[in-house]
Write a protein that binds this DNA or RNA. Structure first.
Lengths: 195, 195
DNA sequence: CGACTACTATGACGATTGTCATACCGAGCG
DNA sequence: CGCTCGGTATGACAATCGTCATAGTAGTCG
């Protein structure tokens, strides 16, 4: 199941991210995480003296970095890069994940954002930086392919918003249709911003 | 605080929706709902023999109906109706709500969707119909203003997705900027589909 | 060898959860 | 009057939660 190639601490962070994006923060118990990570229970309090908040926080920044890395991986694409191609690239990962995992898991940032109230918790700060990391990666990729720098942030916000909402609708419907829809509908608009 | 103009049962459903969209399903206890609704605790098990699932389910269909009613209320708008105007109409409600409530509350459907795993729970069925009700209302409004019937569903999915994602980003950033952004960026695309 | 550190193991704690069981109240009605 | 019935009021249940306290092992270094 969970290969022990990587140290237990990393596995716990990864498992926390996977469980959170499947069932939410509150529904994900610390005991569930250590079991899913196949890690010793005593190690949790050793590696995460900050408790559950620290674990969830690190899972969020891991997610943000992962998303940013995936966005940046669009560079290795063969063929002419375009904003619509980047958006399709982002959506493809989710289509595969949703179908392969049978709509069990969604976006960890969405799950965390939905459960945190108005207050400022230590978790929310990490959520903010994770989202910022992701969006920044999209902006960088857009300007790299020639989109005007003052135009890119708005487009990135639109892309992330549409993708996030489509993920939610896809999960609700148990159908990846919304992902295809937003890609198709948004493509002409996105490509009209590149040279 | 909570006027007793309406029967306790309705107040509980409403309070459940408000608490769920603020803190999520798991973080919302049954005791919290009855307290927020200023309702007698014994009445909960009387009106909702199905337990928490029934309460959350009814809160979801209430939310779906509310969203659909708000979309339909665009009819009373003075001035020329347009797809972009409808989208701005939908976003305006959220801008006001987020700022007035200081980003305490998000979308109840998003909160529920994020916490439900892959399985089919009785709650998920209600979530599905609520989302369908909302999207259907958008489609009806679009065709009413002249959008081609085979084009409307795709646009509605795009609008709902972008709005939902923007709500999440706005909550994370504590800034309604994303709402404005998606409205601005999407307006030309939306209006290019109306006569 | 002994001491020290990194990591693991286990049991218990108080709090909170959803749900159930039981009893009480007041009006309607024969 | 007595009886029913929609609604209310508590108290307790088992389960689970995050966290803590304490003791154990393994390995390294002096």
């Amino acid at each position: 199941m969970a290969g022990k190639a990587r140290p237990a601490r990393e596995r716990m962070v990864y498992s926390a991210a996977q469980l959170v994006r499947a069932r939410g923060v509150a529904m994900t118990g610390v005991r569930d995480v250590v079991a899913h990570a196949d890690a010793p229970r005593g190690s949790f309090q050793h590696y995460f003296p900050g408790g559950k908040d620290q674990l969830v926080g690190e899972a969020l920044i891991w997610s943000g970095d992962f998303a940013a890395r995936w966005v940046a991986s669009y560079d290795q694409t063969t063929g002419e890069p375009s904003p619509s191609g980047l958006f399709a690239h982002m959506a493809r990962l989710w289509k595969e994940d949703l179908t392969a995992r049978r709509y069990e898991r969604g976006c960890p940032m969405m799950a965390t954002a939905a459960e945190l109230g108005g207050g400022d918790s230590p978790v929310k700060e990490h959520l903010r930086t994770a989202a910022e990391t992701w969006e920044r990666a999209v902006v960088d990729e857009l300007v790299r392919m020639g989109v005007a720098p003052q135009r890119a942030p708005g487009l990135a916000t639109l892309m992330v918003s549409a993708l996030e909402g489509a993920i939610m609708l896809a999960r609700v419907r148990r159908d990846v249709g919304p992902l295809d829809t937003v890609v198709t509908e948004l493509s002409p608009l996105l490509d009209s911003c590149a040279p």
